[in-house]
Design a protein around this nucleic acid. Structure first.
Length: 426
RNA sequence: GGCUCCAUCGUCUAGUGGCCUAGGACUCCAGAUUCUCAAUCUGGCAACACGGGUUCGAUUCCCGUUGGAGCUACCA
């Protein structure tokens, strides 16, 4: 199969969300895996629903992920004359008629069934008697999706149509249109949609956000791609981490799943963590730049923070949570309050730890001694350094609350054991 | 309602009649490691929706039931 051509055909009715973009991804990967071409076609035939700026957002989303399209972007709204010309052909064949200002296509199926070999679903068939004459040119002169996409796909020599599952029941209409023109229909692959945790259509709350939003939140394009592609597609082996390049050679339509996957943010977070570590190891200048762009850290600060915290971070933005560890700011009132709270927690924790003999007495005594001093003049760093060294010893410390949590967890375990044993003795 | 699609651990999935006491990943739990956490490694919990067939043998094939999703617009 040569001369593979596919297209991504969003309608500019808003900013495309991740489910939408996954369709673009699959199209892109399929084209690249077959050495084919990937086109962008804006399906702006519904004048009422057009959102200004949406096209730019679509382009931006694709660009951020590295999904470069071939050739020029095509606008259906600029091809009205072409659709008109094709309407004439149907009129001549008596396959179109005027109805209340709009043109309808006359269903003229000879067989009781119409079907096709779908590349992900296999054979799909519809009884033709459920089909009704449908509108191809609206009364405002613009074509409907059905008409415009069939005409354009043919003229653009699209070989494979990869689109959402919701189109599956309109495909018979499209097939009839191809027949009417005596055109060869392209191959179809209908992709199952991503669902929310409630198994309903993915909502904004559940993760139907744009690529830009995800990147703003600190997700990496690499992680987004990796996550999206594994939602509905699986590789041959057990490998989980894939770069776009690897996917371009690995991808295949046969391994697309028939059922609808559920969006799972925890796994996205995991992918993002994996990619942060991968980039740190392979190209830490790149990571540093990303962190600096996001946080405005100085060179030295960025180096220190990244080095000490890159294993615990899930999103790029998380790095900024650790800046106070190293920045040595003068203490403001808020930080001071935080001090008091944290130090109270630590103080009582230490008391209990010493009772339970979890930590060396010596350590506790030295921390106590420090804590009894007037700590309000200390910098945050000094406090954390002290506690970090005494209890944990790690040079680049933990946030106080983390520390309190650790101690708290250890305590509750110990206490639970103690209670259990006490009860056993009874 | 009609038509269509779909159905393996909580989630993403492998599996195309015997390699399956169903494999991997996320999450969770435990252990190892690290003077803490994280990361890493090891181990653990956890699934073939149900009922009929077909077959020597079904997660895998067929039918039905149930459940979920989509379409049923002068929206895409």
């Amino acid at each position: 199969m040569d001369n593979i051509k596919v297209r991504y055909g969003p309608s500019p009715t808003g900013i495309p969300h991740i489910g939408n973009i996954r369709t673009a991804l699959f199209n892109f990967l399929f084209a690249k895996s077959k050495n084919g071409q990937f086109f962008l076609r804006i399906e702006d035939t519904d004048q009422a629903r057009i959102v200004p700026g949406a096209v730019e957002k679509i382009q931006q989303s694709l660009k951020l992920l590295g999904l470069l399209y071939d050739g020029e972007i095509i606008y259906q709204s600029k091809r009205l004359d072409i659709y008109q010309k094709h309407l004439e052909i149907l009129k001549e064949k008596k396959l179109a008629y005027l109805d209340d200002g709009a043109w309808r296509f006359k269903i003229n199926a000879s067989d009781p069934k119409i079907g096709w070999q779908d590349l992900v679903h296999g054979q799909v068939e519809f009884p033709t008697n459920v089909l009704e004459d449908f509108i191809i040119i609206k009364s405002d002169g613009f074509p409907t999706y059905h008409f415009a996409s069939v005409v354009d796909d043919h003229l653009m020599e699209i070989s494979h149509v990869l689109r959402g599952d919701e189109w599956i029941s309109s495909t018979p209409k499209h097939l009839l249109l191809y027949d009417a023109f005596d055109w060869k229909a392209p191959e179809f692959a209908h992709l199952p949609p991503i669902l929310g945790p409630d198994h309903k259509k993915l909502s904004k709350r559940d993760g139907a956000k744009s690529v830009m939003e995800y990147i703003n939140e600190g997700y990496l394009p690499e992680a987004l791609i990796n996550f999206m592609v594994l939602l509905g597609w699986s590789p041959k082996g057990d490998q989980e981490i894939f770069s776009l390049d690897q996917l371009c050679s690995e991808f295949s339509l046969e391994r697309i799943n028939k059922n609808s996957p559920v969006f799972n943010l925890e796994k996205l977070d995991w992918f993002n963590g994996q990619w942060i570590r991968k980039i740190y190891e392979e190209d830490n200048h790149h990571l540093k730049k990303l962190v600096q762009d996001k946080t405005g850290f100085s060179d030295i600060l960025a180096d220190k923070i990244i080095e000490s915290t890159y294993t615990r971070v899930k999103k790029i933005n998380d790095f900024s949570d650790y800046q106070y560890l190293i920045k040595q700011p003068k203490i403001d009132r808020n930080l001071l309050m935080f001090h008091d709270d944290a130090i109270d927690v630590l103080r009582s924790a230490l008391r209990l730890l010493s009772n339970l003999k979890v930590v060396k007495d010596e350590t506790i005594r030295s921390v106590y001694k420090k804590l009894d001093e007037d700590y309000s003049n200390w910098s945050m760093t000094e406090i954390i350094q002290l506690i970090g060294r005494s209890i944990s010893g790690r040079k680049y410390f933990l946030p106080l609350l983390d520390m309190a949590n650790i101690i708290g967890n250890k305590l509750s375990d110990k206490l639970e054991n103690a209670i259990e044993q006490a009860e056993k003795q009874k």
